[in-house]
């Protein structure tokens, strides 16, 4: 069956099997391999993408369920002008090792900061608790998110009066 969705700003239509998972649609059909899968039971979060601004686990979402919606993946995080503060935070605070959890982790973190620009450590930990990382022990991921929060706060504070965020 045909499914049409907007992925990272581009409208795509494909003929897919109804049972095709969104994670496989993104990876195999669209070759957006930044979204990973690590468990297929909604436990690890490696497959986290956004549907209409909400993080979802694409390993337990059918591609057809995303029909008519906006999907955002890690490939869209970099605004084109350099790294997103979340990406920069992960880099500067060594929030990644093998990099396998990183795309999903960053999509969750980006969502958090959009909702809550100044989360404390406990809030960050709770928010990323659906994303498993086997390498980092989470410490530097928490620091990376804090770095992004601080940096965005600075960027906003430095903006001239009246500028929109």
């Amino acid at each position: 069956m045909d499914v049409t969705m907007n992925v990272n700003g581009d409208e795509v239509t494909r003929d897919v099997e109804p049972r095709l998972l969104l994670v496989h649609f993104l990876r195999d059909e669209l070759r957006l391999t930044g979204t990973h899968w690590g468990c297929d039971t909604s436990n690890c979060g490696a497959c986290t993408v956004w549907i209409d601004q909400q993080p979802v686990k694409s390993c337990t979402t059918l591609a057809v369920m995303a029909g008519g919606h906006d999907v955002r993946t890690v490939e869209d995080l970099d605004p084109g002008t350099g790294l997103d503060p979340v990406q920069e935070g992960f880099m500067l605070e060594h929030g990644l090792q093998c990099g396998f959890c990183t795309p999903g982790m960053m999509m969750t973190a980006r969502w958090l900061l959009d909702k809550n620009p100044d989360p404390d450590e406990a809030t960050i930990r709770e928010c990323i608790s659906g994303n498993i990382c086997r390498c980092t022990g989470y410490e530097n991921i928490v620091r990376a998110v804090r770095w992004a929060a601080n940096h965005e706060a600075d960027a906003t504070a430095n903006q001239p009066e009246g500028a929109s965020a």
Binding site: T33, G34, D78, M91, L92, H94, G99, F100, T102, P103
Partner: peptide, 21 residues
């Protein structure tokens, strides 16, 4: 020192086995 390999991982440009097509 910030890691050289991070540039690709942060952008979803890593090349894991399942990415080989």
């Amino acid at each position: 020192m910030i890691r050289k390999e991070d540039a690709r991982f942060l952008r979803g440009q890593g090349n894991y086995v399942d990415d080989v097509n």
